[in-house]
Write a protein that binds this DNA or RNA. Structure first.
Lengths: 200, 200
DNA sequence: CATCACCTACCGATCTACAGGTAGGTGTGC
DNA sequence: GCACACCTACCTGTAGATCGGTAGGTGATG
């Protein structure tokens, strides 16, 4: 039972860390403020995670575990799952904000999350290429291949997140994402796009 | 002459600040390290910019001045200018890194650059819509309007920058950007895309 | 032309505030 | 009685900012 309690604590701490990082980034986050949020002292926190960096790594690993298991069954995503992922994200600004802040920081020198993101993006691009191939085959509009389109798909998701975080009221993230998918689909049509699920 | 010297100093400081922010972000940057780079003490630096935040604001304002004058003549950009902007950026990782780092930080609470970016993106989207309308008229592939496509264009530029900064060798930023433009153009063709300028 | 008032461009010392991390406990449950 | 889950006390480093100078220049005035 104590062990369970301990694991609970760790989970609480990770959740709190996620929040604090969302609010202030990794560099701006302090162990003290994370600890406070779960009713510990800073040193009590260090009992669970020996350094600040270890805490960050744990947060990243959890994220990895999450979206390796969550939507990505066995053999990758499908496009409509991506779609619902974006909608899911749109309801969880906290998580989006955490990872957008971390991504931004990670491009600076010697940032502890840099390797994580570098590897992650290589993998995400590969996944995206698979998704696209599954959905559209080898040839996409503009003469693109799945491999050429994958970085674009990835970029759109990230870029939209920043715009949305900065000003949620002026960017309809899921809608915009569907717009992009429509481009990929190559609907040449001029018909007004079908109303997506809950577009308001 | 003394006045000129002073303005030179300020310019030097801004350049140094840009570098340091690229390397460590705003929160990670210290006045001391900026000062050192121009042969001043931290206190000497504060003579020119009274607070750290004032220094950041000056950096942002300079950027604003730069890209309000640089490529955006009279009545906005054209698409091929955007294209060369992306190529220009690809040769200046420092600047890209500075603003990518700042964008990431800016989504955190109370960040001093937040208002700047929020306003800036609204403006950028409007500009992009103009560019698209000028180039493609009212109807784009997928039934999109210029206003609907503008956030996507913006998102692609930013998103690609992050991928490129994390791993320049595996992302051809200008090439990928041209790929996206090809999507917008709606080339339904399967012909291999024309070799863009210096794609290797 | 000399002097006095004032400004600019800094630097040294120092203050305050945290931040991350260590060492060595104490209490509680098994 | 010992392992685990914490805490108190403390150290060290660093960051931004203030204070009070100093050295050099400029400009007006007697």
């Amino acid at each position: 039972m104590a062990r369970t309690r301990s694991e609970e604590r760790r989970a609480e701490i990770l959740r709190a860390a996620l929040e604090v990082i969302a609010e202030r980034g990794y560099r701006g986050a302090t162990l003290g403020s994370v600890a406070e949020r779960v009713g510990l002292t800073q040193q009590g926190l260090l009992h669970y995670f020996p350094t600040k960096e270890a805490l960050l790594v744990a947060v990243l690993e959890e994220r990895d575990r999450w979206d390796t298991s969550g939507g990505r069954d066995r053999e990758g995503w499908r496009l409509d799952l991506l779609d619902s992922l974006v909608e899911y994200n749109a309801m969880r600004p906290g998580i989006v904000q955490t990872f957008s802040a971390l991504l931004g920081e990670s491009v600076t020198d010697g940032h502890p999350a840099r390797a994580f993101f570098t590897e992650r993006y290589a993998q995400v691009r590969a996944n995206m290429a698979d998704v696209l191939r599954l959905e559209f085959g080898e040839r996409l509009p503009g003469g693109l291949t799945p491999e050429r389109a994958a970085p674009l798909l990835t970029a759109v998701m990230d870029g939209l997140q920043y715009q949305w975080l900065l000003d949620p009221s002026s960017v309809d993230m899921p809608g915009a994402f569907r717009d992009f998918v429509r481009l990929l689909r190559g609907d040449e049509g001029t018909q007004p796009p079908p109303p997506g699920p809950r577009r308001d």
